[in-house]
Design a protein around this nucleic acid. Sequence first.
DNA 1: ATCCTATCCTGGCTGC
DNA 2: TGCAGCCAGGATAGGA
Length: 276
Amino acid sequence: MPELPEVETIARLIRPRLEGRRIDGCEVRWTRTLGGLSKPAFARAVVGARLARVWRRGKFLVADLERSGRPEGALVGHLRMTGRVHVEPKGWDPGPYLKVRLALDDGADLFFIDVRKFARLWYAAEPDDLLGTLGPEPLSESFTGDWLSAALRDRRRTLKPLLLDQTFVAGLGNIYVDESLYRAGIHPLARSDRLTRERAARLRDEIRATLGEAIEREGSSFDVFYRTPEGNPGSYQDEFKVYGREGKPCVRCGEPIRRIVVGQRGTHFCARCQRR
DNA sequence: ATCCTATCCTGGCTGC
DNA sequence: TGCAGCCAGGATAGGA
């Protein structure tokens, strides 16, 4: 599932192919993908606009739009679980799950594809309406051990669901939370306000290390869904220590990895290395 | 304030 | 082999 490392990989790969391009046309196959805007309203908003900066915020992909050199809203995408983005030559076959196609002025097409119809591609006049509630970027300077320690203590939440809460920290999903907690030696059911400063700082370090290594590997591809915009799978799934490893031995201590459900999410951990 | 459930969707897997 | 039913997961809404 696309989490921060996958979205970052996508942003990096499509950036050089999108920045500076003008949108010459659009085709919408599934209106709900637009998140409330009608097809004509969406077309009016994006056709003729130029894609300026392409960037990522949490799990959102953002392309700032310009008209006559002036900022004019943004395209904001969220892939949810099965969304994909491709930039391909005109005529490329996107398969049966194409939701939106944008024709670019260099002859390429931007394809927004999704099997399950949860993904969204918004036109936002004010992108902050979508991005404004997000918590800090875990790879940014502001995500420090002290900040995390204080923020965890401010809440009284079960740790794992809190880390999945995008208003708390932006970009973490089920996989990287499980992997980060394992690496930090912290139980997913730990109470957020009971972590010592030292353990919070360790968690901060392991979150950043996990995300950084996953970005280096171009994300994780353990099912048919996530592929880079070039169609290649990432390889970080080979590094998973707990996610999807139920019953297999912990690489550190040999204890079988356990799977429980926390906040409706499959949760993988080592009961010996991650004590309560 | 926090937690829980249902919803949105479909392909793929399990079990009969 | 066929098929019904369940599961996965990101985000959100509504209720406890």
